Simulated scan of single mutants.
Amino acid sequence: MTTFDDRERAFETKFARDEEMAFRVTARRNRLVAQWAAELMRLTPAETDAYAKAVVQADFEEAGDEDVVRKLVADLTAADVDVGEADVRRALEEKQVEARRQLMESQ
């Protein structure tokens, strides 16, 4: 039974590590896409930092990316930036890859 218990613990540890990495990648992606949007809205560095924190917080409203997409589209529209939902989703995909790469390089 010891071998089985060891394998079970190893799987649980790997699952926890994978979940933590997914969370960190998503948080980093949200920060990167917020910086992208802030640049389009021509925010100052201080405003960009605050905006990035707001976008990361917006992701906790509901499961999935819809809350982030809604916030970004609404904020960009309010700032008279001609960017649609498809553009935001494309930016999310691009920043997802970049966020994963950054986290892998930092380890």
Rank of each mutant, 00 (worst) to 15 (best):
A10Y: 04
D82H: 13
V68G: 00
T3D: 03
K71Y: 08
M1D: 06
E12I: 04
L76Y: 05
D5F: 08
D75V: 06
M104F: 02
L103W: 02
A79P: 05
Y51T: 08
R101Y: 07
K53A: 15
R100Y: 12
T26W: 04
V25A: 11
V83T: 11
V83W: 01
E61L: 07
A37K: 00
R17E: 09
A52H: 02
F60Y: 11
A22G: 05
R29M: 14
L43E: 03
M41K: 10
A91V: 06
A54T: 15
V56F: 02
Q107V: 06
T3Y: 10
V88S: 07
Y51K: 12
A22V: 04
P45C: 05
F60D: 12
Q102S: 12
W36I: 12
A37T: 03
V33E: 01
G84A: 00
R70A: 15
T48F: 01
R100C: 02
A34P: 01
A99D: 11
W36L: 06
K14V: 09
A79Q: 04
V69S: 01
A37M: 01
V83A: 15
A27R: 10
F11I: 03
R31W: 10
A46P: 01
A58S: 12
V69G: 00
R101G: 11
D87E: 13
Q96K: 14
Q35C: 10
D18Q: 03
A86I: 01
A78T: 11
A16F: 04
V97I: 12
R7G: 08
L72N: 00
E61S: 14
L103F: 10
A50G: 14
E19S: 02
E12P: 02
M21P: 00
E39M: 15
L43M: 13
V69A: 03
T3K: 09
G84E: 00
M1G: 13
